[in-house]
Simulated scan of single mutants.
Amino acid sequence: MNEAATTTYQLLIRVAEPVRVRVGRLGQFDFPAGRYIYTGSAQRNPEARIARHLAASKRLHWHIDYLLDAPGVAVTGTLRFGEPECVVNQMTAGRILVPRFGSSDCRAGCSSHLKWLDGEAGLVSRP
């Protein structure tokens, strides 16, 4: 598919209390309480992908699944974009706490697709 057909989404996430999570093969990490934003994409049926992320019961597959499965972690909103995943991610403010989270296959130089907003606006600035 071409880049114009790429469907990108962002999950706005709240971590109520600090939590330690084993993120698959990536390892174990401490996530401070606060707001996070995760950028992902789905080439086909992005609404099904978002619904899967929001499901209470699922097989843990993607990095984000492990975080969302932790106690006190909830998705508080979603955003959708027509731009490619890495373009949206690179335009999004925030601090990287876990390198390679959601970006282990990234070829655009993203060090992580999960950012801790920690008081920053965090939302993509649209032209």
Rank of each mutant, 00 (worst) to 15 (best):
S112E: 06
A108F: 14
L114S: 01
G94P: 09
S103Y: 00
D118F: 00
R95T: 10
C106T: 06
S125T: 14
H113R: 03
G94T: 09
S125P: 09
C110A: 04
P99M: 10
R95D: 13
G109Y: 04
K115L: 11
C106R: 01
H113L: 06
E120Y: 02
C110R: 07
C110W: 06
G102D: 01
S111G: 13
D105S: 13
A108L: 11
C110V: 08
L123V: 13
L114R: 08
V124L: 12
E120A: 15
L97C: 06
S103C: 08
L117R: 11
W116T: 02
G122E: 03
I96P: 04
A121L: 14
L117Y: 05
A108H: 15
G102N: 04
R107M: 08
V124N: 06
L114W: 03
R100K: 14
D105N: 10
K115H: 12
S112P: 07
A108M: 15
R107K: 13
D118T: 02
D118A: 12
A108P: 07
L97Q: 05
V98E: 06
G94D: 12
G119L: 05
C110F: 04
D118C: 02
I96L: 12
C106Q: 03
S125E: 14
S125K: 12
S111E: 15
A93D: 15
R100S: 10
S112L: 02
S103R: 08
I96V: 15
P99E: 08
A108S: 14
P99H: 10
S103G: 11
I96N: 09
R100F: 04
D118G: 13
R107S: 13
R95W: 09
L114D: 07
R95S: 12
W116A: 03
S104M: 07
A93W: 07
H113T: 08
L97D: 01
A108V: 08
S104D: 02
F101I: 02
R107Q: 14
V98F: 07
I96R: 10
A108Q: 13
L117V: 09
A108R: 10
L117C: 06
R107H: 14
R107F: 13
L114K: 00
S125H: 14
H113S: 10
A93G: 14
I96D: 05
S103L: 06
C106A: 02
D118V: 01
W116F: 15
G119F: 07
S104H: 04
S111A: 15
V98G: 01
S111R: 14
L97K: 03
P99Y: 04
C110L: 08
W116R: 03
W116H: 12
D118I: 04
R95H: 15
P99Q: 05
E120V: 11
